[in-house]
Simulated scan of single mutants.
Amino acid sequence: MAGNRGGGDAGESEWLKVAELRAMAESQEPHAKEVDNLTLRRFLRARDHNVEKASAMLVKAIRWRKEAVPGGSVPEEKVRRDLDDDKVYMGGADRTGRPILLAFPAKHFSAKRDMPQFKSYVVYLFDKICSRIPRGQEKFVCIVDLKGWGYSNCDIRAYIAAIEIMQNYYPERLGKALMIHVPYMFMKAWKLIYPFIDNVTRDKFVFVDDKSLQEVLHQEIDESQIPDTLGGKLEPVSLRNYERTLPA
């Protein structure tokens, strides 16, 4: 069963556990009735099919969302300052159809970060990328381009906050994170972040050296979907402008 964790079709035994999870979660939190079965399955897989642990995780997530996003979505105005920094872009899709998120940590500065606003921004961007996941897929891919990253960008608290939001409240949504153009000094920061990442999520972070970058990108993504900044043909869209590019 653990081999099913990463995605794919569920077997009958897994759906039976999903039903168990629903019954247990609804007995603790009435709003669990609003959660669809695929979401329940992601929480179940995130806790290695332990129904009790998955229920505790789901109930916590439901209550967190009611407090963190009382209106159901984060208003653009609330995260305008982070959006204006253009540190996240929407890309194309990988060869399996998973949408691509591009992150540029060198555009994030710890000195100007406001933690409550940053957390809202993280929720905003995860909601946006998850809304792009097509039917038949459940995950997205992230390319983290660390080119130009330095000490002024080092914000351990913010990085840990973002990872904890992702793994606790958006379980089994990240398919892979390609870490590229990684400066040596970033690895010192990574050693401080690493203990806060759960075992399942750790395996999804892939550090790519510069010599292998083009080979890895073309293995994962068709050239038409690779960002033009990385030698491909697609012009990514800033998260700040993403809503304006959607069809009416």
Rank of each mutant, 00 (worst) to 15 (best):
T229L: 14
M90P: 00
S212I: 03
L101A: 04
M24P: 00
P99T: 08
A2S: 14
A248N: 13
V200C: 07
D85S: 14
L38C: 00
E52F: 00
E243P: 00
R65W: 07
R5F: 03
L192P: 00
L38Q: 07
V18Y: 01
S238E: 08
I129K: 04
Q28I: 00
S152K: 12
H218R: 15
S212H: 13
G175S: 11
R244S: 15
G72Q: 06
V51Q: 02
L125T: 13
V18E: 04
L234E: 08
H31V: 09
L38N: 08
R5A: 10
G136N: 03
M187A: 02
T229W: 06
Y124M: 12
Y169G: 00
S212G: 04
V35W: 02
K147E: 15
V88K: 04
V200T: 14
S73Y: 09
S27H: 08
A56Y: 06
V35L: 07
K176C: 15
G91V: 00
M166F: 06
L83N: 02
T229M: 15
L178E: 09
N4H: 09
M1S: 10
R41H: 05
G3V: 02
R81Y: 09
M90A: 13
V88Q: 13
R41W: 04
E243K: 03
Y170W: 06
Y151P: 01
I226Y: 09
P30Y: 05
F207W: 02
M57Y: 04
K139Q: 15
S152L: 12
I197H: 02
M115D: 03
K128I: 10
G7A: 10
Y169P: 02
L178S: 10
Q214W: 03
P171Y: 10
F43M: 03
I180K: 03
D86F: 07
D114Y: 04
R80W: 04
A68T: 01
V182L: 07
V206R: 13
E215N: 14
K119G: 00
L217M: 11
W149V: 05
Y121H: 06
I221R: 12
A46L: 01
L230I: 06
L246V: 03
G6W: 05
D198I: 09
S110Q: 14
Y151D: 05
A19N: 04
S73Q: 12
Y170A: 09
F104S: 05
K233V: 01
E138K: 08
D86M: 04
K147C: 12
L58V: 06
K33Q: 11
N241L: 12
L239I: 11
W190T: 05
G136T: 05
G71C: 01
K53M: 13
F104A: 10
E14N: 00
A248I: 02
T229A: 13
I163K: 03
A10Q: 04
T229D: 13
E164F: 00
E243M: 05
S55H: 06
S224E: 13
A162K: 10
S131L: 05
M179K: 01
D86E: 11
D9N: 05
A106S: 15
